[in-house]
Computed example of a mutant assay.
Amino acid sequence: MAEHNDRGREAEQLAREWLEGKGYVFLAENYRYKHAEIDLIMTHRELLVFVEVKFRTGTGYGYAEEFVDYKKRQLIIRAADHYIYEIDWHRDIRFDIVGVYRDPHGRVAFKHFEDAFY
């Protein structure tokens, strides 16, 4: 597996653990529907939350949320619609972005954008 894929999986695991520490309940990871993938699916306070995780070693090329463009958002929404139908969900949903940042010393920080798009 390519190094960037390994870092992405690690970032997703770190984000999952961090969100669980904030009271989120994990349901699924890497949910795929056609050409779309949702990194994490969780519940929080009776909301179904679809989470896109972005890993960065710095902000020189931009912040995590800037890398979820219109096309990516549409793919996530399409996959979320399928998941909602699949599990017969009838309550509210939300789309979040979690930026996972690792500095040159290996320290990890998170930036959480709740209700980032729809």
Rank of each mutant, 00 (worst) to 15 (best):
D88S: 09
L47C: 01
Y70S: 05
L75P: 08
D69Q: 03
M42I: 10
H90Y: 06
R78F: 04
L47E: 14
T59A: 06
G60L: 11
Y85C: 01
K72H: 13
A64R: 04
M42T: 08
R73K: 15
D69T: 07
Y83S: 03
Y61F: 11
M42G: 05
T59E: 15
I76L: 09
L75N: 14
F67L: 07
Y85R: 10
L48A: 03
I93S: 02
I77C: 02
E65G: 11
E46H: 11
E66I: 06
Y83P: 07
I84Y: 05
K54C: 00
H82D: 14
I77R: 12
T43K: 14
Y70G: 01
H90T: 06
I84R: 10
Y61N: 07
D69K: 11
R73V: 10
D81T: 09
F67Y: 15
Y63W: 09
H82G: 02
K54L: 00
L48V: 00
I84M: 02
L75Y: 13
R78S: 11
F55L: 00
V68R: 12
T57N: 12
E66G: 15
Y85H: 07
Y63Q: 06
E52W: 00
Q74C: 02
Q74G: 01
A64Q: 07
R91L: 10
L75C: 01
I84F: 03
W89D: 06
I84E: 06
I93V: 09
F50H: 02
V49I: 11
L47S: 03
G58V: 02
I77H: 06
K71H: 08
G60I: 07
D92V: 00
L48M: 13
K71V: 01
K54M: 00
Y85S: 04
G62S: 01
D92E: 15
R56T: 00
R78A: 14
K71Y: 08
I93Q: 07
K54R: 15
E65K: 08
V49R: 12
K71P: 00
V49P: 13
D69M: 04
A80N: 04
M42C: 10
I87L: 04
I93T: 10
I84C: 00
V51H: 03
V68D: 07
R56A: 00
R73T: 05
K72A: 09
R45N: 13
E86T: 11
I93E: 09
L48R: 11
R73E: 10
F55Q: 08
I93N: 05
I87S: 09
T59W: 15
G58Y: 01
L47P: 04
G60H: 12
Y61A: 12
I76W: 09
G60D: 09
